[in-house]
Amino acid sequence: MRHWPLPLLGASLFGSLLLSVSTGTVRIPFEVAVAHVFGLSSADRVTAAVLDIRTLRVLAAAITGACLGASGALLQSLFRNPLADPFVLGISSGSSLAIALTLVFGLGGGLISQYDPYALYAAGAVGALLTSLLVISLSSVVQSVSSIVLVGVMIGYLNSGLTALVVFLSEVERARAFSFWTLGSFGAAKWSILLPLLPVSVATLLTMLLMAKPLNALAFGDETAVSMGVRLRLTNVATVAVAASALSASTLIAGPIGFIGLASAHIVKLTLDTSDNRVVIPLSAVVGATVAILSDLAARSLLAPLDLPVTAVTSIFGAPLLVFLVLRRRAWS
């Protein structure tokens, strides 16, 4: 394991937090922003309001990114598959289906307005949770990890098929709105959603740390892991459950966001040259948060005042970074 990137990863999270809070269409000097965030000085009311909105957004991005990054690390380790991410379990497609249903058929009756982003994300979270429960209950029946992956992928296809059908049958306007909301955004975040989710997310992330030890053993294969004392079924179900909980929280905040779940763990593994989940899981949360904050910053700054879809930004900037790291690995090893 390489140790020097450790402080670098921490510093980049911290730096991106401050940078994101101090950057925006309303110009606020960096030191004013920093002082306000730390409660050292009170800015005027307008500045404070602007900073409050930005802090909310940054915090939303940080929580979402941390949840996505850590669950990606968890799922990749559980499935011993570097391509495992929320999509593999059909969870993301579950939330997309729920969003489509809400948007097009107005599920929830008159209680929620169709274009209220919170309602849509709430629906998305419910979709993710229901899909996860389905995967968990099926995976507690089948023993092997590859069967769980297969079940997850099939549920994903089922969800995607239904979503395609729903979108095809809807009006053009709504189909357009659907594709916007399934790309995710931190712009819809509210303190009223974020504050209750904060302790839930933190608890989920801490629970994930408990999974590090059994997941490290699972790398040896199911049978060897069991011979070392791993409770296999408990580990499988608990890992899927805790990942699903984190994914639901992130969907609730920002909608389905791609790439971060897949990339964060790889960035950690490649920069630190380790597979130890005790390191990879927490640092994937750190990297996920950093990537989410920077992506959000880019999404709202690149073509300001346009707010670009986050998934577009994460993919456009993240994919080349990941490819670069993979190519560099040859030079390192």
Binding site: M1, K213, A217, F220, G221, E223, T224, S227, M228, S275
Partner: peptide, 26 residues
């Protein structure tokens, strides 16, 4: 009882010492 089964799992970046230390699992 401990066991060595067939197959060569992909252990990523794990070092020999880390792998042997996994034996302390229980």
């Amino acid at each position: 009882v401990s066991a060595v089964f067939t197959g060569r799992p992909n252990l990523g970046a794990m070092t020999v010492e880390e792998v042997v230390a996994m034996g302390r699992y229980p």
